[in-house]
Design a protein around this nucleic acid. Structure first.
Length: 840
RNA sequence: GCGGGCGUGGCGGAAUGGUAGACGCCGGGGACUUAAAAUCCCCUGAGCUUUGCUCGUGCGGGUUCGAGUCCCGCCGCCCGUACCA
């Protein structure tokens, strides 16, 4: 056999063309095979594929190819989340059209993905900026409108002054815009909303059924939805008014010693004619918003000139305007129970308000003093009239029941989740299909007039919404009365685009968003893979959208993604020097640096640079490695192999040159082994047969559990064992097996080897090798011999040897006898096929 | 504060309560070569009085014949999240 090198620069393209021409990965909805839908979160077309994409898509690709070999009809599509701000930024900076810029990026990135050899069904490719796609999205939006799930209202919104658009609550992080980082302002605007809160309970309940989602993501969504149950009730105020408060601890109502209202509460606003009150309100609004600052921020209050009457005791409680009460939650007012709420405790201490005990560890300790902090824990109710002696839970219910029967309050569930504001004052998004008519009000665009397409001739030379200032686009006639009217110029949040794209992949008729029957064949997605950064936004919206469509009878599934996997980031060490004049670090890219095991030097001057922490690849730290350059140098299979090796997929993967070189070496090593394949070899090697079958079973189990790093290790082991084995029929079948095992991970190498050894058709179409259960167990096992749990010797014994035999074998060990040193044996523990432990 | 995760060689990491460190990377030694690359072989947790012994999975306890794994109490790091009443 010739021992030539595997040349990816030839083989990669060759097999990529073969798969494309053969339609190898085109999914057939009408196939009788069981279906498997493998999906990775589709990319935003920024222009370049980065290593994070490569890792994400490689994992999905291994699953897709493996499932195909296991006999599934696999749907593994790819498309583009193509609307969004960066295209408009490019338009503003470079004077290009967002559409043209996006299309060009898509073409580039598609070519990159194809060079990695992903098993994608490109016939289903689309971009969300295709009018066909967003036209159907407009139709779905109108359906939801008819179903009462879309509404419009004037509301205070989060306004990003840099991007000049509205942000959803989910997009405001620490008071700053998630994209621009600018301090978010409050503005009042007429906005479109989706009634996600109608599904709050359902979305929360549904989390329980998502067993194959990471616990972490489910908890994050649970916290985000934020269900709490309590009592809403009103205090009668001394000025004749009422003050509604909400509490999750109505059991502590007898411990209330004050009331506190938010600075923007109507009552506070009503008092703002007093300059002192106005000044205090101002002070509250300037308050810190960062986590660290809030942690230490002092509780401040302003004593309002009114009191609130306690519904049971009749006591007059002072009312404060307080900086720690939020208008957005509950009623914007609370009853202060200092004994059993830490914030109230701090506040009461500062303003010398009574701190009453109404919960104690037992009734005898009803007057025990507090130890410098509130006691929020469980216990028995004390000092509380008719509640005395009850548990916290029972008392909650008793107060709610009493309030409801007496009519001064009622049990209420409060959600942290807000309705989803989807209006964006941007050009590059899906136009919201409505028309504003002075006579008819807000009128939906008739479905036969969809899509409402974006105008091409727009300018980006000034900030704001180009649709709003376009000379003609928004001027249309009212579909109802025919009079002059105006188009809605807001576009939809791009998270709407990604809330149903998986349905369009499954089915894409021209005249409808999707065909429910086709969708039913593929949904739910069997494996959904992407970054943890979408744990709340995208994944919650997609779950909501799917439910909303199910609610309107369009589809049957409630949950779009049966299993979710969040992969780790690709990281790299950083190289930097401190700039002497400015005192800040200057970073260098990996290609500018010579890295040895001792350290790193700059190629330009040969002087050392500091090797920094291994962190997520980012442009600002210059620790980015471009996939294209690596693929050009080492081939697609080496990169794919690297993405799967070493690190468990949910953890970060540190990129290293040594690592990729090792992978490239292994590709060649496998190629040499494959080249040594001899179809005519004879003779049996039972040991190797066992190893082969054990490896096939283990690799399958590892892939199914997404333990790619472990599957990789198994393949290394079998490779080593096969290399060492003498030629035999067993060795030849081991090599054949290795080609199959490698096929999902290193598909180009596998195809090339498969062809060379005369395999039929493409290995991508071949079935996964069958396992002989008889070969999964060894006939000889290694038995550990222990004395008092410490290893003293090992011996080999036939599989299934009796306890007596194993004990005799152990006692015959010279090493064990030396350790025993004549001591009397008290007990012998024998674990069959495992170990013998002598206790003295 | 709350919630979650993690802590094992120089590094990434293996290990149903049963031989800790599989597999890979780095490093060292050797073979082949005029030489280099490639390849192949051997070594590679620490220590010691080295047929073997002792120690060793963040720290301190515990359960067990036996603990990286289970229990209790700490420490550290990472991620998420928050004056949510």
């Amino acid at each position: 056999m010739t021992d030539t090198r595997f040349d990816p620069s030839v083989a990669d393209g060759r097999w990529q063309r073969a798969w494309a021409q053969g339609g190898t990965f085109t999914a057939d909805s009408d196939s009788p095979k069981p279906k498997s839908y493998i999906l990775e979160m589709f990319p935003y077309p920024s222009g370049r594929i980065h290593m994070g994409h490569v890792r994400n898509y490689t994992m999905g690709d291994v699953l897709a190819r493996y499932q195909k070999m296991r006999g599934f009809e696999v749907l593994h599509p790819m498309g583009w989340d193509a609307f969004g701000m960066p295209a408009e930024n490019a338009a503003m900076e470079k004077g290009v059209h967002p559409g043209g810029w996006t299309r060009q990026n898509i073409a580039q990135m598609k070519a990159q993905l194809q060079r990695i050899g992903f098993a994608l069904d490109w016939t289903r490719e689309f971009a969300t900026c295709d009018p066909e796609y967003y036209g159907h999205e407009q139709a779905l939006f109108l359906d939801l409108y008819e179903a009462g799930l879309v509404y419009r209202k004037e509301s205070t919104v989060n306004w990003d002054p840099v991007d000049m658009t509205v942000l959803a609550n989910e997009q405001v992080i620490d008071g700053k815009g998630w994209r621009s980082g600018a301090e978010v302002e409050k503005r009042k605007l007429n906005q479109w909303f989706l009634k996600i809160t109608d599904f709050a309970d359902d979305l929360l309940e549904g989390l329980g059924s998502l067993e194959d989602w990471p616990e972490k993501v489910r908890l994050m969504q649970e916290n985000w939805i934020g269900k709490s149950q309590g009592l809403e009730f009103s205090f009668d105020l001394s000025d004749g008014g009422k003050l509604a408060v909400y509490s999750t601890r109505p059991d502590t109502i007898f411990g209330a010693s004050f009331c506190a209202i938010a600075a923007d509460h109507p009552i506070a606003q009503g008092l703002a004619s007093d300059p002192e009150v106005a000044a205090f309100i101002d002070q509250c609004k300037k308050g810190a918003t960062t986590a660290a600052a809030l942690e230490t921020a002092e509780k401040l209050g302003y004593r309002a000139p009114i009191t609130a009457r306690h519904p049971f005791t009749g006591a007059d409680l002072p009312v404060f305007i307080a900086n720690f009460v939020l208008m957005e939650y509950g009623t914007g007012a609370v009853m202060g129970v200092p004994g059993h709420d830490q914030r109230d405790f701090e506040f009461a201490t500062k303003y010398e308000l009574p701190i009453l005990r109404v919960v104690a560890t037992d009734p005898a300790r009803a007057d025990e003093p507090f130890k410098g902090e509130a006691e929020a824990g469980d216990g028995v109710i004390v000092n509380s009239d008719f509640l005395d002696g009850m548990t916290v839970e029972a008392a909650k219910q008793a107060v709610i029941t009493r309030a409801e029967s007496e009519g001064w309050g009622e049990g209420r569930t409060v959600w942290r989740l807000r309705d989803w504001g989807v209006s964006r004052q941007r050009y590059w998004g899906t136009p919201i299909p409505f028309i504003h008519c002075d006579a008819c009000g807000v009128v939906p665009v008739p479905k036969d007039q969809l899509p409402v397409t974006l105008p091409e001739d727009v300018s980006f030379d000034i900030p704001g919404n180009p649709l709003e200032r376009h000379p003609t686009w928004k001027h249309v006639d009212c579909p109802k009365c025919g009079k002059a009217a105006r188009r809605e110029t807001d576009t939809l949040d791009t998270f709407v685009d990604s809330s149903w794209y998986f349905l369009r992949f499954a089915s894409q008729p021209a005249d409808r968003p999707f065909d429910p029957e086709e969708v039913a064949k593929w949904m739910p997605v069997q494996h959904y893979i992407g970054g943890i950064e979408h744990a709340i936004l995208h994944l919650l919206y997609a779950r909501f959208w799917t439910r909303a469509l199910a609610h309107t009878g369009k589809i049957a599934v409630q949950e779009p993604f049966a299993a979710l996997f969040t992969q780790g980031m690709v990281t790299h060490e950083t190289y930097s020097r401190i700039d002497e004049t400015r005192g800040v670090p200057v970073f260098f890219g990996p290609e500018e640096v010579d890295r040895t095991s001792e350290g790193a030097t700059l190629l330009a001057d040969g002087a050392p640079v500091e090797v920094g922490r291994v962190i997520k690849m980012s442009k600002s730290k210059k620790n980015v490695v471009d996939p294209d350059a690596i693929i050009a140098r080492h081939g697609a299979d080496a990169v794919r192999w690297f993405m799967l090796s070493d690190s468990p997929p949910e953890r970060d993967l540190p990129w290293s040159d040594a690592g990729i070189e090792g992978c490239a070496r292994f590709v060649q090593r496998l190629w040499r082994l494959f080249s040594a394949y001899d179809a005519g070899a004879t003779g049996e090697d039972k040991g190797l047969d066992r190893k082969t079958h054990q490896t096939i079973a283990a690799v399958a189990a590892d892939i199914e559990a997404l333990g790619f790093n472990k599957a990789v290790a198994r393949i290394y082991e079998l490779t080593g064992a096969t290399e060492k084995a003498a030629p035999s029929a067993s060795r030849s079948s081991a090599i054949r097996a290795l080609v199959h095992l490698a096929a999902p991970m290193m598909p180009h190498l596998a195809e090339e080897a498969w062809e060379k050894m005369g395999g039929e058709g493409l290995i991508a179409d071949a079935p996964w090798p069958a396992v002989d259960p008889a070969l999964l167990v060894d006939d000889e096992v290694t038995i550990a011999i222990q004395h008092m749990g410490k290893l003293r010797d090992t011996v080999t014994a036939p599989k299934g040897a009796s306890k007596e035999d194993l004990e005799a074998l152990a006692l015959a060990s010279a090493n064990l006898q030396r350790s025993l040193d004549g001591a009397a044996v008290r007990k012998v523990i024998v674990v069959p096929d495992r170990l013998v432990n002598i206790v003295t």
